[in-house]
Computed example of a mutant assay.
Amino acid sequence: MSLAFAGIGETRVIVDFTGKDDMKRHLQDLGFVKGESVKLLSENDSGFIIMVKGVRIAINKNLASKIMVA
């Protein structure tokens, strides 16, 4: 399931990424790595606020759909 479909307040574990290599590198640079826990804090029309490695990060819905979680 992609992170875009997780519920508010849920904590999930990153299992994979979709997209091109440069997109995967960008996500890894932001702290999104396989095995890392992420928590969906809030959602609005343009995207999500995600907690990863103790840092709040705002990402758009397209980017969130590239992050596969379990």
Rank of each mutant, 00 (worst) to 15 (best):
V15F: 00
D45Y: 01
T11G: 07
G9I: 13
D21C: 00
S42E: 14
V52T: 13
F32M: 06
A58K: 15
M68L: 13
E43K: 15
V13C: 03
E36M: 04
V33G: 06
K24C: 02
V33N: 14
S46A: 03
S65D: 15
L3P: 08
A70Q: 15
G31S: 02
E43P: 07
G9C: 08
M23E: 14
F17N: 09
L30Q: 14
R56P: 06
L40F: 02
V55Y: 05
T18G: 04
L30H: 08
S65V: 11
K20L: 05
E36P: 04
S65L: 05
G47C: 10
I57L: 08
K20G: 05
K24L: 05
N60P: 11
K61I: 06
N60F: 02
D21I: 13
N44K: 13
S46V: 13
G35Y: 04
S37C: 07
A64L: 07
L63T: 14
T11K: 11
A58F: 02
I14R: 09
R56Q: 15
G31L: 05
V69L: 09
M51H: 05
Q28F: 00
N44M: 00
G35R: 09
V69P: 10
D29Q: 11
G7L: 12
K66P: 03
K24H: 06
G31C: 03
A64S: 09
E43Y: 00
D45M: 04
F48D: 08
A70I: 12
F32W: 00
F17S: 07
F32G: 00
K53N: 12
S65W: 07
V15I: 15
K34W: 00
K20Y: 01
G47S: 10
F48V: 12
S46L: 03
D22F: 02
V38G: 08
A6P: 03
I50Q: 10
S46C: 04
R12T: 06
M23Q: 14
V33H: 09
N44W: 01
F17T: 10
K53C: 01
I50K: 05
I57V: 15
L30Y: 04
D22Y: 05
V69Q: 05
E10H: 01
E10D: 14
V55T: 15
G7V: 06
A64Y: 02
D16K: 13
V33C: 05
E36G: 01
R12D: 03
I67M: 09
D45P: 08
M23A: 09
S46W: 03
S2K: 14
R12I: 04
V69S: 06
H26P: 01
L41S: 03
V15K: 15
G9F: 00
G54K: 11
